[in-house]
Structures are given as structure tokens and as C-alpha cells.
């Protein structure tokens, strides 16, 4: 019997800036993004990125939020009590037990992208696990227009997981493999993951290689999200957040279709929402303090 591998699975991990010490910071804030597929916790010291954790969302939001914050706190010597303000965001934002406030993921992604990609970012595409968002923002990272799709799996990480499982390709290798084709095949049906899956099975039966099917699927996905972006318009500079931002199979095809390159950063694209939440937390905490002084 074939081994039952989970090809969609990606590595959960924590990161910490070893050169920083939170003890010298005046304000410590945290953002928790409980998404439908992944959860992140970001800790910021005086508005600078200090530590984060990226984990798979479990069956309930409070546990996932706890797991993420514990992962980010681990090894720092920080405890929850040291954090001045915590903002929850994402699909499970109202179920983060230790958060002081909930902010929508749209506002947080815009704020996070503004931090990660700079104040010139005007258009953000967030390709999440179960949704896809096109956002416009101003130089402060404030949302001016947004359109999101969370009803349909086409154009989401979940759709890519379905395909990775079907083709038995680890999800992190999808991007590179999709370029191992002699010629770019036409995209599969970009409209519905269910139909794309049956189309992919038919193509495999017809002798297509996995790489070619992946290429066809990646370009269908690029096409799908580009039509969401087109409906709000792409103003430069352009930034991509979410898990799919790590999949060059989709990103490069999307850039080609749009004729626009996305700004790249070394910070993990999946933490944009939690990072934005931590930034909101800082603003909210400062407001609160200003109020109590006055």
C-alpha cells in the first residue's frame, strides 16, 4: 500500500532577531493572525520586528492563537504580561483569548505590507489559505479600496493544496517544478478547483507530466487572481502577501500577466497580517496612553 503522505504540509517555525533585546524597549506589542489554514504571532519591540511564529491552524481558534504566541515567546524570556497591547486578526480574530482588540485582516495586511514593502506600496494582493484579497492603500498603509474572495477555493492556498495532493508533489516544490517544462501549456479551467482537478486527472491519463500539469494549474491560478486584481486596478508599487507569495510558479506567471513586478522582501510573506496587527497594537496602545495622560 502506498504511504499516505501529506504533500500539502509545510514547516512550522519560529524566528527571533538575536541582535535585539526586548528589555530595552519602551513599547512591546503583538499581533496574532488566526487564519483558516495557518496562524501567526508577531512580537514587535518599539515598532521593530522582534520575533514571530508561523503554525498550522488547529481545530479551534483559541488553541491556535495560544500555540502561535507560545512559539513566538519561546526562548525570548518574554511572557504575555510583558506585552503592552495585543491585536487579533484573521478569520478567528474574535477568538483570540488574550487579545485586547480585533482588527480585520484587510486593514492588517495593508499595514503589514506598508511595513514590509515600504510606504510606496499601493496595491496588495494577499493570497491566503482560503481566500484572496486585492487591497489598495495610501502611504500610511490605510485601506482605500478592497475586494476579497473567500467563497471559492480557486485562487487560494487550499486550491493549491488540493493539486499538490493529487499530483503527490510537496507544496514547497510546486513553484520550481512548474517551470520544468519545455513549453508553457495552456491554463486548466481557472474557474473551479473541483473541475480543475478532474481536468488535471484527465491530462495525466492523457500522458501529461506532473510538471506540465502544475504549470497549467499555476497559470490558471495566476489568471484567476489577476482578474480579481484587475477589477480594482493595479497601482504600483505592488506587493504580495500570504503563503502563495512563496510559490514562484504562481507569482512569476502573475507578474507576467499583469506586466508588473512585485516588490520582494526577505520577511516571510505569511506574517504580513500578524505584523500589521502588531503595528495596529502599537498605535492603539499609544492612543490609550495619550488618553490616560490627558
Amino acid at each position: 500500500m502506498a504511504e499516505n503522505k501529506e504533500f500539502w504540509r509545510w514547516t512550522e517555525y519560529s524566528w527571533r532577531d538575536e541582535n535585539k533585546d526586548w528589555r530595552g524597549a519602551a513599547i512591546i506589542t503583538a499581533g496574532i493572525d488566526v487564519g483558516s489554514v495557518s496562524s501567526q504571532a508577531v512580537i514587535m519591540a518599539d515598532g521593530e520586528l522582534y520575533a514571530f511564529n508561523n503554525t498550522r491552524t488547529g481545530s479551534n481558534s483559541p488553541d491556535s492563537a495560544n500555540k502561535a504566541i507560545e512559539g513566538a515567546l519561546a526562548g525570548t524570556g518574554l511572557t504575555l504580561e510583558n506585552i503592552n497591547f495585543i491585536v487579533g486578526t484573521g478569520y478567528g480574530r474574535v477568538n483570540v483569548p488574550f487579545a485586547h482588540k480585533a482588527v480585520t485582516e484587510i486593514a492588517c495586511h495593508a499595514r503589514g505590507a506598508n511595513f514590509m514593502g515600504g510606504s510606496e506600496i499601493r496595491t496588495i494582493l494577499d493570497m491566503g489559505g482560503q481566500d484572496c484579497k486585492a487591497i489598495h492603500c495610501d502611504e500610511k498603509g490605510k485601506v482605500t479600496n478592497f475586494k476579497m474572495n473567500d467563497k471559492c477555493a480557486a485562487g487560494t492556498g487550499r486550491g493549491m493544496e488540493v493539486m499538490a495532493d493529487l499530483l503527490e508533489v510537496p507544496i514547497t516544490e510546486v513553484g520550481d517544478l512548474s517551470f520544468q517544462v519545455e513549453e508553457e501549456p495552456p491554463p486548466v479551467s481557472s474557474t473551479c478547483v473541483v473541475f480543475a482537478k478532474s481536468e488535471a486527472m484527465a491530462l495525466l491519463r492523457d500522458g501529461w507530466k506532473k510538471e506540465k500539469v502544475l504549470a497549467a494549474y499555476c497559470s490558471a491560478m495566476a489568471h484567476r487572481v489577476s482578474s480579481l486584481l484587475d477589477s480594482v486596478g493595479v497601482q504600483e508599487k505592488f506587493f504580495i502577501t500570504g503563503g502563495i507569495a512563496k510559490n514562484r510558479g504562481v507569482v512569476e506567471r502573475l507578474e507576467k500577466e499583469l506586466g508588473v513586478k512585485a516588490v520582494k522582501t526577505k520577511i516571510d510573506s505569511q506574517i504580513a497580517g500578524a505584523l500589521g496587527a502588531a503595528l495596529f497594537a502599537k498605535t492603539l496602545f499609544e492612543k490609550q496612553q495619550a488618553k490616560s495622560v490627558a
Binding site: 481545530s59 482560503q130 467563497k151 471559492c152 477555493a153 487550499r158 486550491g159 488540493v162 473551479c192 478547483v193 473541483v194
Partner: peptide
């Protein structure tokens, strides 16, 4: 869930 892909997960949760 409206989408078939998401509904599958919902059915699994209902079973659980």
C-alpha cells in the same frame, strides 16, 4: 461553505 472544496472540510468537521 459554498465552495465544494471548503464544504468537504465542513462535512469532515460535522462528522468529527
Amino acid at each position: 461553505a459554498q465552495c465544494t472544496v471548503f464544504a468537504e472540510s465542513e462535512v469532515v468537521s460535522l462528522l468529527h
